[in-house]
Amino acid sequence: MHLEIEELSKDYGDLLAIDHFSSRWKDDEIIGLVGPNGAGKSTLFKIVAGFLEPNQGKIRLNGEKVSLGSVAYVPEFPDLFPVLSVWEHFKFISLAYSIKNWEQEAQEYLEAFQLTDKKNSLAGELSKGMKQKVMIAISLLRKPSVLLMDEPFSGLDPLSSRELQHRIQGLKSPDRIVLVSSHNLNTIQSICHRVLIMNHGVLVRDQEMNAILNEIKQKGFETLEDFFLEVTTLGSP
């Protein structure tokens, strides 16, 4: 499975948010998307998810036009219904996407994400970390071909962040493309196999994590942050 993005651009009047972005994403890997504030990461996610229309460019999934049902988007701030329980969210998704015999799989996701004891809790009563896990779980119930997670670790305490990292690592699948956007470069280094670096709407690096780590070593940098600052300040060599 692969998703191809070709010459994608998006502007908001005088602001060019995405500038001729081209990349090819494949399954069975966790891809990290990083960049400074305003780099265009969230705009890119929303275009791929079908929430925004680009000014130009093409997006194809396995050579075909991307259908809305094939992409699941988990925003930075979990968008749940506060008066519905966790289990009612699964039921709502099953009805919205005409998913049959969903109960057993939903129960398995509750167990996998350690949400069993929260099954009947209202979403409005959950912590941000719990809400993030519910968002990911109900997204997986749809069996999306592409899963986009925008800053999923934002606002989490260290323990919740580490637990969510572990859950995301387990999402790697031969029939699923997974992208994670985060400002936490240590987390990206820990869970991602490949990294895309954006700056001012431009894709300035698209590399395997191992290649980046080798370059960091060759240049005498100490951390991925040093590498990131060089790339986003000076641009790609």
Results as ranks from 00 to 15, higher is better:
103 E>V: 15
93 I>C: 04
140 L>I: 03
99 I>H: 06
75 P>I: 13
137 A>S: 15
69 G>C: 09
128 K>A: 09
94 S>P: 00
96 A>C: 08
87 W>H: 03
139 S>R: 07
93 I>N: 01
118 K>Y: 09
140 L>E: 02
116 T>M: 13
135 M>N: 04
94 S>N: 10
139 S>I: 00
68 L>V: 07
140 L>M: 11
115 L>N: 08
123 A>N: 12
138 I>L: 12
107 Q>N: 15
79 D>N: 12
110 L>V: 09
128 K>I: 12
137 A>F: 10
82 P>Y: 05
135 M>K: 01
83 V>M: 03
111 E>Q: 12
109 Y>V: 03
106 A>P: 02
126 L>H: 00
122 L>S: 14
69 G>E: 08
85 S>F: 10
85 S>K: 06
119 K>H: 13
86 V>P: 03
140 L>G: 11
125 E>Q: 02
100 K>H: 14
112 A>Y: 07
111 E>T: 07
79 D>Q: 12
75 P>E: 10
77 F>P: 02
136 I>D: 05
102 W>Y: 15
134 V>A: 07
74 V>W: 05
139 S>F: 03
68 L>N: 10
138 I>M: 14
129 G>L: 00
124 G>F: 09
109 Y>K: 02
104 Q>C: 02
107 Q>M: 15
130 M>A: 11
136 I>H: 08
85 S>L: 04
117 D>R: 08
135 M>S: 03
112 A>H: 07
